[in-house]
């Protein structure tokens, strides 16, 4: 079913998306928020720019954006896929518990903060370009891969901002860069990814490359650094019972 979003109010648009019997293609999306909240069992293709909180609580549906997305994509997402053929805003995948998000371009501040995993649920975010500060803050589980593809040759800095992995206590961060990662917090332990580490990300880089028609092998040839929580400096404060 095709829906022309145009100047439709977000409530009306989302009502139609939910009510549609099968897959949905939204044309002329001009920033309508909350598309695909809690959605399962269908594919939604969006041509244009969806507004904030795209795919919040997503529960199994696939969302494909042909354009840029805004803030809070995949907030508390439980399952499914979000593919953004463009860039995404801040707080991408906040507190995400399952499913996969692929962004061809860059993402903003606070990407993947407080992601967690549980049993078979293991959230994955792959960002093709750069991300802002606070990447993977409070990370408790899951996998975030930043590929730094968008113009690293022009840029002399790593494709992440400040405070990467602050408060990290689970999960893995992979960052593809030739640059040294500086100013990492004490809770994070960084090293060059070994081949066994890279095996973890190969299927997701392949999937990323397939969506955006890139060469996965070429991407994987770059230098990847892997960030893990440093068990010697756990994120806690010493308390005294009073």
């Amino acid at each position: 079913m095709r829906i022309s979003a145009g100047r439709l109010d977000f409530k009306e648009l989302n009502k139609r998306v939910k009510a549609a019997p099968g897959n949905v293609e939204i044309e002329e999306c001009y920033g309508q928020r909350f598309i695909g909240s809690g959605l399962s069992g269908k594919t939604v293709i969006i041509n244009g720019t969806p507004g904030n909180a795209l795919g919040a609580y997503l529960d199994g549906a696939t969302i494909i954006v042909n354009g840029n997305a805004q803030d809070a994509v995949g907030d508390t997402m439980n399952d499914g896929r979000i593919i953004v053929d463009g860039s995404a805003g801040d707080a991408l995948g906040y507190a995400m518990r399952g499913g996969r998000i692929f962004v061809r371009g860059s993402a903003g501040y606070r990407t993947g903060i407080h992601m967690k995993q549980y049993q078979e649920k293991k959230p994955v975010i792959v960002v093709g370009g750069r991300v802002g500060s606070f990447l993977g803050e409070y990370l408790a589980g899951g996998l975030i891969v930043v590929l730094g593809l968008a113009g690293e040759s022009e840029s002399q800095s790593a494709p992440v901002g400040n405070f990467t992995g602050t408060g990290m206590h689970g999960g893995l961060l992979f960052i593809r860069t030739e640059q040294a990662l500086e100013n990492l917090p004490a809770q994070v332990w960084a090293q060059d990814a070994k081949s066994t580490d890279l095996e973890i990300i190969v299927p997701y880089v392949n999937e990323f490359a397939e969506y955006f028609k890139m060469d996965a092998a070429e991407i994987l040839q770059g230098r990847f650094q892997v960030l893990r929580p440093n068990a010697k400096n756990p994120y806690h404060q010493l308390y005294t019972a009073n």
Partner: peptide, 17 residues
Amino acid sequence: RMIPEGSDAISPAPHHD
């Protein structure tokens, strides 16, 4: 809570969104 056994459950002071 849907988090692994033994994993700390941290609720940050603000909602960071």
